[in-house]
Amino acid sequence: MGLNPGVAMVFQDFALFPWMTVEENVQVALKARGLSHEDVKERALTAMARVGLEGFEEAFPRELSRGFKQRVGVARALAMDPEVLVMDEPFSQVDALTAEALRAELLDIWQDAERNPNSIVMVSHSIREAVLMADRIVVLSGNPAHIRTIVPNTLPRPRSTRDPEVQKLVDRVHDIITSAELPDVEVSAPIPSKVPEVIEPLPHVASTDILGLLEFLEEQGGSCDLFQVAAQTQTPFETVLTTVRGAEMLDFVDTPKRHVTFTAIGLRFMAADMDKRKDIWRAQLLQLRLFRVVREMIQLKEGELPKEELLHELAARLPMEDPERTFETVVAWGRFGELFAYREEHEVLTLE
């Protein structure tokens, strides 16, 4: 048994050498293969370009965000030109928005039929992530580990968490994992009408930042590469992703591959005057379950909802999120759209 040159690995905890630069970290496995200096240099730079690391060649790991550290790990693996790329929970150490961007980029790389890798084997504890990315979902059982079942995923790409068919498959895989014993017959998807409406967590971004992004996008002709947005506005990439996510939740922009582009609603919003913009913003807020819940709670409290009660509700409905930060975002977005007001002196939300 020896090393398999057709397989490369991306680790959960980055596994970078802290005393090496980004380029040196990417080159390390190539040098171990005994390649010439020119080949090592060319393959490392090509791999870094594929994951958006241009300009970071001389940076050290301590100078990078967690998302960019994982990009280095992916570039190091891609530089080996593997037929099979193995990834051990590659997005578990980064924030949700960065993980979303990295997943999209990884799929773009994999779908390039002219380049390796041909196959990606990814370990994940996220059912939603598996459904969004995989063609086949292998469910394992433990003690000892063995394959419990393989679920084919034939949903068309690109996939969205808002797609009812995606949610059905998420529920089906969840049923398989949580069932005490794997049934002999296929687990059926839940009846759509009985599936609870999902409340999506809000990115912590100010309404003014979303407006700034939309104005910048308008100056660029309505579409721009995400990395160019970060470079031209001199804004950290993670901050750009957060802002784009907020605009996308309001359906003002779409994000095909690495671009951010106006939707029809976004174009209508930009063409409107300020009063009409507030109307459009308010209408888009009410497309989000969270804001409908807040409005319903205010109505049930006869027009005055104490902050503390909403914080408890947010903690219950979004247990993985910081309720204070979510509250701040809810108030900021709701105020701009004049969906409700927040009286800070009394710490209550009102409909006026």
Results as ranks from 00 to 15, higher is better:
Asn118Met: 11
Ala230Val: 03
Phe262Ile: 01
Lys194Ile: 05
Ala272Ser: 15
Lys257Gly: 03
Ala180Val: 04
Glu352Gln: 14
Arg136Ala: 15
Gly212Leu: 02
Asn143Ile: 06
Leu318Gly: 03
Leu35Tyr: 11
Glu58Gly: 07
Phe252Val: 04
Ser119Gly: 03
Leu217Arg: 03
Ser65Phe: 11
Ala272Thr: 01
Val10Glu: 07
Ser119Lys: 13
Ala283Met: 04
Leu241Lys: 04
Pro82Lys: 05
Thr329Lys: 07
Thr161Met: 14
Leu300Asn: 14
Lys307Trp: 00
Leu339Ile: 11
Pro183His: 05
Leu300Ala: 15
Pro144Val: 01
Leu318Trp: 07
Ala130His: 11
Gly266Tyr: 00
Ile137Thr: 08
Leu267Asn: 05
Ala332Val: 02
Arg50Thr: 03
Met133Ala: 03
Leu155Pro: 09
Leu155Cys: 04
Phe56Ile: 01
Ala230Met: 06
Gly142Trp: 12
Lys69Thr: 00
Leu102Ala: 08
Phe237Met: 09
Val51Thr: 10
Val166Cys: 10
Leu35His: 02
Asp273Ser: 02
Met133Asp: 03
Ala247Glu: 02
Asn153Glu: 06
Leu106His: 03
Asp273Lys: 06
Lys276Cys: 03
Gly142Thr: 14
Ser160Lys: 05
Gln12Asn: 10
Glu215Thr: 13
Glu197Thr: 13
Ala145Asp: 09
Trp281Gly: 04
Thr239Glu: 15
Val86Gly: 01
Glu197Ala: 12
Val10Gln: 05
Leu214Phe: 02
Gln287His: 15
Leu106Tyr: 01
Gln93Arg: 12
Thr21Phe: 10
Phe56Tyr: 15
Pro164Tyr: 04
Val51Met: 11
Leu250Ala: 09
His312Thr: 15
Val229Gln: 03
Val151His: 08
Glu338Cys: 12
Ala247Asn: 03
Thr350Gln: 08
Pro192Asn: 04
Leu241Asn: 13
Gly266Ala: 02
